[in-house]
Design a protein around this nucleic acid. Structure first.
Lengths: 210, 210, 210, 210
DNA sequence: AATGAATGAGCCTTCATTCAT
DNA sequence: GATGAATGAAGGCTCATTCAT
């Protein structure tokens, strides 16, 4: 269970004979969960998954290659999940709320992966795969805008610049989730995003409805 | 307080004979601007400001001390600016909008420092000054809640859980500013937050008004 | 026929379906031309010629095997060329000069291979094929001495210790060629050895004639 | 004695308090003597001289920095020695012979350093200090040509292109010394260059006299 | 307050080599 | 003959930190 990449579509047949590549990514995520992205070191990964240094390089080229690969895996998983929720939604309001709750649910279900996404984005954006990231982000955004457009035309949605939409709709949930994920210690802990699930969804709708 | 970083309150007397402490912080910011927080190394700072290794340690104790000191300097500067805008606002709506625009204006005026704030928060939160950060955040939040409360009582503001307020009000601006700051290359560049100044302010008000 | 190793004796039948062994050696030479003998790595070679790691090992046993094989190929090619020139020469003086010009012409015609010979000798001499190298050098020297002997007997050549002959005759050309080959950038470039072809040949004769 | 850097001007007063920089260079030379330039590794050096990794980097920047520094030290020492011999010579013939014997004597006295010079030149020439090497070589050559010129004018020396002079005069000794130095094992050992000291000097004179 | 040499842990990376298919 | 995943030793380099002056 632990090492599933896509917990969503889980119908693993018998049992993959320990895929090295996946082992390495899982180990990397574990490292990151423990000490942040910076804690993803070749040796840390090696120690966790039993792969050899050479094997890691064989699959990922270099350290950043691991981080980037993991990032994109998670990024796509998240996109897929949110998109699925969006597709299932009936009507404008339900759609906007699905974006928020789809994201929120995914974060609550996979806090470590969500945290990694927040932490690693900067590094990936700074590295050689910048274009890939830009492309992935663009694709995601396009899908979103495509979904919004007809409703904007019909007047169900307020007329807002499309560059602003992601921030207006997702900004609050992301902000809250980020804060929640930062609370590593159970100290002055913020309540789970779940607590405010409907409030956040409603607020998003309030912001963009006509 | 000779060499204030904030160009806002500038009343530098004659000319401080280059304050070492400040030189070091400036150099650290420059390093971070170039290569992210991780690029703030003792040697990088030394090379930029001419201070000796020993001198740096004398002033800040250790590497994280530099990052933390810079972080708190900037954090307080930002708080002060936003608070000033809030204080100057007349009425609930103006207050909520002042929070957004005060933040936005500060970010646009100081992109490098804003970027540093985003990048360094994690590191500071993980280090020994966690309580200081928590305290600073608490204080800031308290001021905000204190300002909101009477209006919430009076029914001018929607009744929302106070843990959610910061994310609802500031989430979208922060989200947009963060995205804007990430665009290092002028490539597919997002427009300056200034462009959407009023839209963001209006959206915040829409979200929390009764 | 770009990839012929011995452009001299070329009687390639139809068209070898890209001989793996030769491909590998060519790739190795290309690596060396770009970054010196040390740059001849299994992976570099693999990347250049498309052979698999296993295939390379199948043909050459180990890395040094590639370098050695290439070295001996080139060494023999050079020897053959110089010997051919020597055989064609009429008389003592012409013979001595043929040694110089034969060498010089070969170097000018094959600068990369000549460079490799200079660079790789040390490595080959240090490796397990030391005896092969010694034997090859001995055989070459023997041929030379055998050619010189009658003329030394006849008094046409100065009476010099035979250990010194190679250095006296070939030292200057080799020295000049080596310097020329070292000039990778066309900067303060030395003129081609061709420029001084006759001078070098004449000087050799001056040194050893009676 | 063996590890003096400038065996010439030795009047070391009491005893330098183990100069780290020099210790490191000595250790590097020892490594090279044992396994060639490639055997000069940070760790090998460290193990030999007790310096820490950091200390080595503090002084030389990187591995190649050590090799280059050692190379130039030795190069200058050699130049100084040969120049001294040349300065002491009376007359053209004596001068030409001094160049040869000065070089030869230095090589015989310092075989390890001479070997290093041969081995390291390529690496230095390929690295970032190429211009320094070019400059050093140019300066040396200039001194030589300046010495030759008047004699060439006076007709005592044959009229030869100055680019050729170094190879004609020094080619044979260098060739022989190089071969001698390559003979690491006492096997088919070549006799010491000393054996042919006068022959080599005489041959050089024969090559360039009018 | 300042200086800079020295330290050593920790990382990333390269590379030759083996081996099952 | 060919393939490519896996291995692990070896090396280079960065960096925070200490300390005597």
């Amino acid at each position: 269970m632990a090492s599933r990449i896509t917990p969503t579509s889980s119908t693993a047949p018998a049992e993959a004979p320990t895929d090295r590549r996946q082992d390495i990514l899982n180990a990397a995520l574990a490292c990151a969960a423990e000490g942040g992205v910076d804690a993803v070191s070749i040796d840390g990964v090696r120690a966790r998954c039993g792969a050899s240094v050479g094997s890691i390089y064989h699959h990922f080229g270099n350290r950043d290659g691991i981080v980037a690969a993991l990032f994109f895996d998670i990024f796509h998983d998240q996109s897929r999940n949110v998109q699925a929720q969006l597709d299932a939604a009936q009507g404008v309001e339900a759609g906007v709320q699905a974006l928020v709750t789809g994201y929120l649910d995914w974060v609550v279900a996979q806090p470590e992966r969500a945290r990694f996404l927040f932490q690693a984005r900067g590094a990936v954006a700074a590295g050689p795969r910048t274009p890939d990231l830009a492309e992935a982000a663009r694709r995601r955004n396009e899908a979103l805008v495509a979904w919004f457009e007809p409703h904007q035309q019909s007047g169900a949605l307020r007329d807002l610049p499309c560059e602003l939409m992601p921030s207006l709709v997702m900004g609050p949930v992301q902000s809250y989730c980020r804060a929640w994920l930062s609370d590593r210690s159970g100290q002055g802990a913020l309540p789970s995003p779940d607590t405010y699930r409907s409030e956040l969804a409603a607020a998003a709708w309030r912001t963009v409805r006509a």
